[in-house]
Amino acid sequence: MDPILQIKDLQTHFFTKAGVLKAVDGVSLEIGAGEIVGLVGESGSGKSITGFSIMGLVDAPGRIVGGQILFKGQDLAKLSPAEMQAYRGNRIAMIFQDPMMTLNPVLRIETQMVETILSHDSSVSKIDAHARARDALGLVGISSPDERLRAYPHQFSGGMRQRVSIAIAMLNRPDLIIADEPTTALDVTIQGQVIHEMQRLCQETKTALLWITHDLAVVAGIAERICVMYAGRVVEQGPNANVIAAPMHPYTTGLLGSVPGQNRRGQPLQQIEGMVPSLMNLPTGCAFQNRCNLVSDICTSTNPDAISTKDGRLVRCHNIAAGDSA
């Protein structure tokens, strides 16, 4: 499968008064055309900043200081703001976490959809743009789309608004959608609907999807590959089935253990002891050392390199031998 997106050694740092915060520090990952990839990590692991880096939407005082973001061979990190703007919402779209906050409260849904089309192709007539907006709403399962186009965001429920956001993201038939915790703010029943809607749409339109979440359980159901981030780095990535069935990095093991329902009833839920270290002041060696139960001398002195395993994974852990397979 040809990768549509190839991130190589991405570094996004925040230059604050208190010091340099390395939110993303050497992330590499690939997404194939039409592929669904889950990017999993705790808050502060740098997963959202990775998403915003791809979009070119990192807010000051943050900026991309190193690495490449190759989208169909074009390095997005090198584009001018105007060139990047042409990609955003067009070839690469994004969906945000809180649907209550992402739609402008004082503009009609139609305005917010049509502007997305017209800002990328001014030759489209208003009538055609309207028709495309209506079709997109129908596609995400919103009934009587003509009427709903004239409505304002506050007239929709949370789940409906997230469907509208998805419709907006789909409007220009992007090659890649970045979904940043798109179901976290929704009710559990609605969550399931939206997840399956997204999966279906991406399959039908052959759109690649980078699903960012803290909840391993969500991506376990839909992603083809899973990428686990910790303290600004990818610690384990590989095919979904392999990662879930037999995690290799102790952090992934911990994450899986803390998902309710994996354990037998009555057993205490496992948890990862301790806290994410400050990104401002990471320890030498492995960033996970203070929470890891397999820690040894080498972990506190050298940062592990990514090791390829036989079953197609990349793992950053000193406890994995090269070519190892669980």
Partner: peptide, 9 residues
Amino acid sequence: KFARAKGLG
């Protein structure tokens, strides 16, 4: 931010 993500100027 969402408006920016849509690629608006």
